[in-house]
Design a protein around this nucleic acid. Structure first.
Length: 637
RNA sequence: GGCCCUGUGGCGCAACUGAAUAGCGCACUGGAUUUCGGCUCCAGCGGUUACAAGUUUGAAUCUUGUCAGGGUCACCA
């Protein structure tokens, strides 16, 4: 309808306005609730062109549209707004149209450019936590939304499987794992502990010993015992220690932090870890075997976590394969004068003209940093997928700076596709006050597996006491509890604008009333139950003419008609929250309808049929929309 | 300190990216079922959109400044 009006205005522009108006001037919006009408055209932009009052302009345009575009019942001008009342026939035929399409609102698959969505990208030294949940749900959902809009999508992650942090877990396991009666160290097999948890345990174990050793060194230094320290380090300590005098508490804390760093670098345990990293990079067979073994434990653990999350990937990238990539590009960049080399041999890029700093891209010893690798990986991905148009990186907002640098570098290296790369930056998930920030080494994380399990537990309790569970097998019940619990959790994390941070409240996430996943799931179950009871629920809206529409029914139809638009906006903004809000709006309208308007007991057949078709399409859109959030909907609950 | 993000009823969030009297959920108060699923619905209470200027016919939205919270400024990833 908006299109029809827009076309009519544009093609008759000369006659109406005496000049060709820009398309931008034609702005539609939803009609306010307290004004009668279905669609509103904003008149203000035309006032200047027509040189008359908004009321006159509105009359003129309204009269024209009513006479030249079909299905307009009436129009009214209120202030600078032209409100159209669209007739029932229009809405009924819209219903009939959407009813024919199984995936209503979706674009033709694989008809739009290929986009890669990266998400999750975990380290293999610790289990996934609450923050990963938001990351995974977001990335997965955005990928689904893009697919639904017709894009070809490649879901991927880069697995951080190498580096000093991995060696820390490996070393701690070798040093501290107790031996059982068969003389074996702990494995997932002989302990029953999930692989990623076991490796994570040794990462924490490393840190414990690391801290103890570092603190002991500081104590020695404080006692002026530098017997085990080199002269330079001793001098550095004294310099830092003296600089504390006269400083305030905050500054002292900062200096203490530096001293701690200094001491940590002197520990034997860190030295051993570094030596291990060197052995790994030299492909020492024994180290490599240990690395492969422990990583495989972790992958098995991750796999079960991803399965519980309901996410998947089309292609995996491993940092151990990609960390060398990018070095050639550094040479290329040097040749193009994009980068420059400092005296010590390190390579940098100067981004001061872009409002940023100088950034290191290659260490003085010639090894790659994270940035080098990311540049290389991006280029590599475009080689892997020649039709790739852009990459969306789902990564927390603490890396905003990193990504603005990355995209700038790619741009300066001459890759035009860098403009199509974006950072889907999301706010941190924080714990309620007093619980502090999540730090895996300090054991203050909310573990992903634990959280999902406890959410499903709550869903089980709540559903058992109020659910309609008769005649459902035990197995189906469990699947249902999972569906409700996970639906609640996903909805809770996705309904908020990605860039806003979330304070995670376990209580609220499992709430069933209000703007929640289960509220929407319930509406779906209810409709399915209604449809099941209807004798003939495969009727069509075809041939429904002259049916009278109740105001709520029309509201629902308007909302349904807006689904393609919502889908489009969500894709454009990379925001599942827009889908969630759309769903909630739709369900509220439907519940209102359900409460006040009879369906099955309606005597007039054509009304009953129309309401069934309406209900069926609401259920369909709920199912489609929720699937974009990675949420399943039940037939009963 | 530089840069980035955020600030909307007691709490949690919307507002189609500049339009009408700023919407909704939770909580609170009161009501609704001889009817298809009460995990439902209706009504009420509650806001100077952090503050101050500015641009505009029109600002929660854009600009500038101030304040508050968070992030980031590594030859870490």
């Amino acid at each position: 309808m908006e299109l029809k009006i827009k076309e009519a205005l544009l093609s008759n522009s000369e006659m109406l306005f005496g000049m060709q108006v820009e398309e931008k001037l034609i702005q539609f919006q939803k009609t306010r609730k307290d004004v009668s009408g279905d669609l509103t055209l904003v008149i203000f932009p035309f006032v200047k062109v027509l040189k008359c009052s908004p009321a006159e302009a509105g009359e003129k345009i309204g009269e024209f549209i009513k006479g030249n575009v079909g299905n307009i019942d009436s129009y009214s001008v209120v202030g600078g707004f032209l409100n159209f009342v669209i007739d029932a026939d229009y809405w009924i035929s819209a219903l009939s149209e959407m009813d024919k399409i199984e995936k209503y609102g979706f674009g033709e698959p694989n008809t739009k450019p290929t986009i890669m969505v990266e998400y999750s990208s975990p380290n293999t030294n610790k289990p996934l936590h609450l923050g990963h949940l938001r990351n995974n749900f977001l990335g997965y959902s955005v990928a689904e939304i893009l697919k639904a809009n017709g894009h070809k999508v490649i879901k991927t992650q880069i697995i951080n499987d190498r580096g000093i942090h991995i060696c820390k877990s490996m070393l701690a396991w070798e040093k501290f794992s107790p031996l059982n009666e068969k003389g074996e160290r702990e494995t997932p097999g002989n302990t029953g502990v999930k692989g990623d948890k076991l490796v994570g345990k040794y990462y924490v174990e490393f840190d414990k010993h690391f801290q103890i050793e570092a603190n002991a060194i500081i104590e020695q230094w404080n006692a002026e015992d530098f017997s085990e320290t080199t002269e330079e380090v001793g001098a550095e300590f004294n310099r830092l220690d003296e600089s504390k005098t006269g400083k305030d508490e905050k500054a002292i804390k900062g200096i203490d932090g530096k001293i701690k760093e200094l001491a940590k670098n002197q520990t034997s345990i860190l030295r051993e870890a570094k030596e291990m990293l060197i052995r790994w990079e030299g492909r020492d067979p024994q180290t490599y075997l240990l690395w492969t073994t422990m990583n495989n434990w972790v992958y098995a653990g991750f796999e079960s976590t991803y399965k519980a999350m309901g996410v998947d990937f089309d292609k995996l990238y491993y940092e151990s394969d990609t960390f060398i990539l990018g070095k050639d590009l550094v040479d290329e960049g040097l040749a193009k004068d994009v980068f420059f080399r400092k005296d010590d041999g390190s390579v940098w890029i100067d981004l001061t003209e872009d409002g940023l700093d100088e950034k290191l891209v290659l260490r003085s010893d010639g090894t790659a940093v994270y940035m080098t690798q990311d540049v290389g990986t991006a280029v590599d991905r475009f080689k892997d997928y020649p039709d790739l148009q852009g990459i969306i990186y789902t990564v927390g907002n603490e890396q905003d700076y990193h990504f603005s640098v990355l995209f700038l570098i790619l741009n300066k290296l001459g890759y035009e596709w860098s403009e199509n790369c974006s950072h889907l930056s999301y706010g941190m998930v924080e714990l309620p006050k007093g619980m502090g920030r999540m730090k895996s080494r300090e054991g203050t994380v909310v573990d992903a597996d634990d959280l999902m399990e406890s959410i499903v537990d709550s869903a089980r309790e709540m559903t058992q006491e109020r659910g309609h569970l008769d005649g459902i097998s035990e197995k189906e019940r469990e699947a249902l509890f999972e569906l409700i619990g996970m639906g609640g959790l996903k909805y809770y994390l996705l309904k908020v604008d990605p860039k806003k941070r979330i304070v995670f409240n376990p209580q609220e996430s499992i709430e069933l009333n209000g703007n929640t996943g289960p509220y929407i799931q319930y509406a779906h179950a209810r409709i399915r139950s209604l449809l099941a009871k209807a004798e003939n629920n495969d009727n069509t809206a075809m041939g429904l003419k002259n049916v009278e529409l109740q105001p709520v029914e029309k509201e629902i139809l308007k909302q349904l008609a807006g689904f393609p638009n919502a889908l489009n906006d969500a894709a454009k903004n990379h925001s599942p929250a827009l889908i969630a809000n759309y769903m909630f709006e739709l369900v509220k309208l439907y519940n209102n309808f359900f409460q006040s308007i009879p369906v099955l007991i309606e005597e007039k057949e054509e009304l009953k049929d129309m309401r069934l078709v309406l209900s069926r399409n609401v259920a369909k859109v709920i199912g489609l929309g929720m699937s974009l959030l990675g949420i399943n909907v039940p037939k009963r609950m």
